[in-house]
Each structure stands twice: as structure tokens, then as C-alpha cells.
């Protein structure tokens, strides 16, 4: 059997138990996966002036902005569920958190509408044009 036969199922029942989580896109790679005291050492030190947020992280000044998910879209954090012995092929992911907006952070530069992640939020609308049905 081809390896392309395996599917990864998204367990939607997990959605009900998923909590809304604050989500930050950081302008650096953090070599860690797992718990961290984000609210104590990061979120608590965020300063806001109008829509622009600033924070110091590892001695660097970050400037950030909160952006919403595109209309008709929801933010999901998916997490793989441990595979069981009986399940060799297929995998399962569950929704561990949901979000409707995220905060992205730039290194030094103030956030603008031309920031990459802001531009990325336009993708669904473009995809709709590419994939929507055409008139006969």
C-alpha cells in the first residue's frame, strides 16, 4: 500500500473543549516546544499606544499589532493525538485551541499593512477567485 494512502483525521469533537488562546507570532525562532510562562514574562510587559504594541523580548524591542482572521475563517491550533498500536497508518489531530485574532511582532520596525503576515491574510480572498465556480 502506498504511503499516500494514509490520512490524518481532524477530530472535530475536540472543538467544543478547545479554549480560546492568545496567539503571538514571534520574530525569532525559539528552540522549544512546550510550556512557558508567556503571560508572566511576556504578555504582562506589553505596552500599548493606540494600535501599536511594544514589548521587550530578550533585550530586543519588538513592535507588534493585532490582526483578525479573515472573514469566514477561524484560527485553530491543531495537535497530534498519540497514535495507538492498532492504528499504524492513519493519524489524528485535535483542535487544542482556537483564536479569531493574533498578534504578530516585528523586530524594531513598526507594523504596517504591508507586513508579510498581513498580506497573507489576503490569501483566502484570492483563493476564492481562483477556486470559486465560474459562470458558464
Amino acid at each position: 500500500m502506498s504511503c499516500n494512502a494514509s490520512v490524518t483525521r481532524l477530530h472535530l469533537s475536540s472543538l467544543r473543549g478547545a479554549e480560546k488562546a492568545p496567539v503571538h507570532l514571534m520574530p525569532c525562532e525559539i528552540e522549544h516546544n512546550g510550556l512557558a510562562q508567556v503571560s508572566q514574562y511576556f504578555t504582562a510587559t506589553i505596552k500599548e499606544h493606540k494600535t501599536e504594541k511594544t514589548v521587550s523580548f530578550r533585550g530586543r524591542g519588538l513592535k507588534g499589532q493585532e490582526i483578525s482572521c479573515p472573514q469566514g475563517y477561524t484560527g485553530l491550533v491543531l495537535k497530534e493525538v498519540d497514535r495507538h498500536g492498532s492504528d499504524q497508518q492513519d493519524r489524528t489531530v485535535k483542535v487544542s485551541s482556537v483564536f479569531d485574532k493574533l498578534t504578530y511582532w516585528n523586530l524594531e520596525t513598526p507594523p504596517t499593512s504591508d507586513d508579510t503576515v498581513v498580506m497573507a491574510m489576503d490569501w483566502p480572498e484570492l483563493a476564492e477567485a481562483i477556486h470559486g465556480t465560474v459562470e458558464d
Binding site: 514571534m26 525569532c28 525562532e29 525559539i30 491550533v77
Partner: peptide, 13 residues
């Protein structure tokens, strides 16, 4: 390149 997430009280590399 060089981005990671904070999701709630966790880091996602």
C-alpha cells in the same frame, strides 16, 4: 524564517 509561536502558555517553535 526565524519565527515561532506563543500559543497560550506554550511555545511552538
Amino acid at each position: 524564517d526565524f519565527h515561532s509561536w506563543f500559543v497560550g502558555q506554550t511555545v511552538q517553535r
